[in-house]
């Protein structure tokens, strides 16, 4: 080996590496600015009681915000309601999406139209859907009250749909299931269409019934997609805010609790502490799920 030729090669490599780093630098700066900095600043804020006016000094409270948060019964109540909401909506939207996907996977006249129609609730803006629901349940001219109370006389008086805490929870869950089930539908339908038809043909030759076919072929094939849908939807719904906040004030989800603390009460330190705790909960759940999946694969 010629020793004299080695140093220039090294320099070239080093130079290329350096140039590569410079090209990647803007992306790194961007990630640092829009992800790392806010997360770091949020953690920093959670130890302070920041003044709204930056000219005024912030007060260091140490773990004070965390102590206040963890001793607030409202926080635990919000957390409980949020877990219930996530469980109901994720199960509901995935089951409904799955059922719709199985239906849409069959051939029937008008299938394209039906598929597009099913996506409507997912693609329409949240605010318009919320207003439609508010008007549906309006005590004066709502269609639901008209049908249940005036036309069919099933109920003697109209319930306070969005004022009764239990009814409100049911309604916001129904709203979310109705609004987001097309996401599960799209995902599951695409995995259904990826299943080779020869597998079904072989099962038919073997004399397998519809239930056996579903349990032994369809379900195992779509299960990985269903797991992804459930994970993603759980994370998204854990932070749910806008539609619930717009529909009712009686369902204190953790997202609503966080919003009120930050922007109604203007307690930014406590709000940051809430975000940190939520982040830990979600990260814990994701890591647990990921390691479980890894274990299963092994």
């Amino acid at each position: 080996m010629n020793q004299a030729t080695l140093p220039p090669i090294k320099t070239l490599e080093a130079r290329n590496r350096r140039l590569g780093f410079i090209f990647v630098l803007p992306a790194l700066v961007l990630i640092g600015a829009v992800i790392l900095y806010p997360v770091g600043y949020n953690i920093y804020l959670s130890f302070w009681k920041p003044a709204l006016n930056p000219a005024k000094p912030d007060t260091l409270v140490g773990l004070g915000n965390y102590a206040r948060l963890l001793s607030d019964p409202e926080f635990y109540a919000s957390l409980g309601v949020t877990f219930a909401y996530v469980a109901i909506t994720v199960a509901g939207s995935t089951l409904l999406g799955g059922a719709a996907a199985l239906l849409m996977n069959r051939r029937f006249p008008g299938r394209k139209l039906a598929r597009s129609a099913l996506l409507l609730s997912y693609v329409s803006p949240v605010i318009s859907s919320v207003f439609v629901w508010i008007y549906l349940f309006n005590g004066l001219y709502g269609m639901i009250d008209y049908v249940l109370v005036d036309a069919l006389k099933i109920l003697p008086v109209a319930p306070q749909w969005f004022d009764n805490p239990a009814l409100s929870l049911v309604l916001v869950c129904l709203f979310d299931i109705w609004r987001v089930f097309p996401f599960a539908l799209i995902m599951i339908l695409s995995s259904l269409q990826a299943i080779d038809s020869s597998v079904y043909e072989a099962a038919a030759i073997d004399g397998a019934g519809p239930w056996t076919v579903f349990r032994r072929i369809t379900l195992p094939e779509i299960l990985p997609v269903v797991a992804s849908v459930v994970t993603l939807r759980s994370i998204w719904n854990f932070y749910k805010f806008e539609d619930v906040y717009l529909l009712t004030k009686q369902v204190p989800l953790i997202g609503v609790y966080l919003y009120r603390t930050a922007f109604t009460v203007n307690d930014l330190g406590l709000a940051s502490a809430i975000s940190v705790v939520l982040f830990l909960i979600i990260m814990g759940a994701v890591v647990a799920l990921a390691s479980r999946n890894k274990g299963e694969r092994v």
Binding site: N138, G139, L140, Q160, F162, D163, K249
Partner: peptide
């Protein structure tokens, strides 16, 4: 008018 009334419900009624 029963319920949590805001601007919309009050004005419309």
């Amino acid at each position: 008018l029963p319920g949590s009334n805001g601007f919309t419900q009050v004005k419309d009624a």
